[in-house]
Design a protein around this nucleic acid. Structure first.
Length: 214
DNA sequence: GACCAGGCACATC
DNA sequence: GATGTGCATGGT
């Protein structure tokens, strides 16, 4: 059972996930910041608030006061730091590339782009890779806590293997294909939510060769 | 009431 | 490099 087999089993069990749920590249950026250690349900509510006021736009966010921003994203938690992080990354995008579309079209090398994103306060590896893959359409695999938990419960990796070691493990064992990267990460999150939560693992119900066996 | 959720920065050793 | 802590709301 290798990472390719797991992918096809997940795909046939859950079906295509069609990630990332967003209408524009910038909306992916906003979601990537807001979802840091936060349930997607609450992130959706925060994004709906921003959408209601027509603020899902780089310039609009820059024109919005930090206090108003805090109020609109409050439901997503950590609103003091997340409002600042939204401003930070948006300032970076607008200053250097005019818009997220502009950033997407730039022809910089993948890893240079990654280093740039990582230099922004509030953007760590998972957030950077999420933006690279789902917003900028670059081939990089996204690792999250579900990925780590599932792989370690399954006995493929040690409990606290380094982020980039896990990322390259996937990248070197599955086809270098943006659509597969997108779908695979989404499927892992779906598997995690369904059968590999910390609180109620439901491992015994996991249909995928007891992947979640603890 | 405790624990968790599609992390990150910062301090400290 | 590894480990610990604050950040904060809403669901179970």
């Amino acid at each position: 059972m290798d990472l390719r087999d797991i992918y096809s089993r997940l795909l046939s069990y859950f079906g295509p996930q069609g990630w990332w749920p967003a209408e524009t590249p910038y909306e992916v950026v906003v979601g990537a910041i807001l979802t840091q250690n936060t349930s997607w349900r609450n992130v959706e509510r925060a994004i709906d608030n921003l959408r209601r006021y027509n603020l899902l736009d780089e310039e609009k966010i820059l024109d919005t006061s930090i206090e108003v921003l805090k109020d609109l994203i409050r439901v997503a938690g950590f609103y003091n730091i997340k409002s600042r992080r939204l401003k930070n990354i948006t300032e970076y995008i607008v200053k250097n590339y005019t818009s997220t579309e502009g950033l997407k079209k730039c022809n910089k090398d993948l890893y240079n782009l990654r280093e740039e994103l990582l230099s922004i306060k509030g953007v760590g590896r998972e957030t950077a890779d999420t933006i690279l893959l789902y917003s900028l359409e670059r081939p990089i695999f996204v690792v999250d806590n579900y990925t780590r938990r599932i792989l370690s419960r399954w006995g493929i990796v040690e409990e606290n293997l380094d982020y980039d070691r896990i990322r390259t493990l996937f990248e070197s064992n599955i086809p270098r294909d943006i659509e597969i990267y997108k779908e695979y990460h989404a499927l892992i999150v779906q598997l995690g939510k369904t059968f590999c939560r910390k609180r109620r693992p439901r491992c015994e119900e996991c249909p995928l060769m007891k992947i979640c066996r603890s």
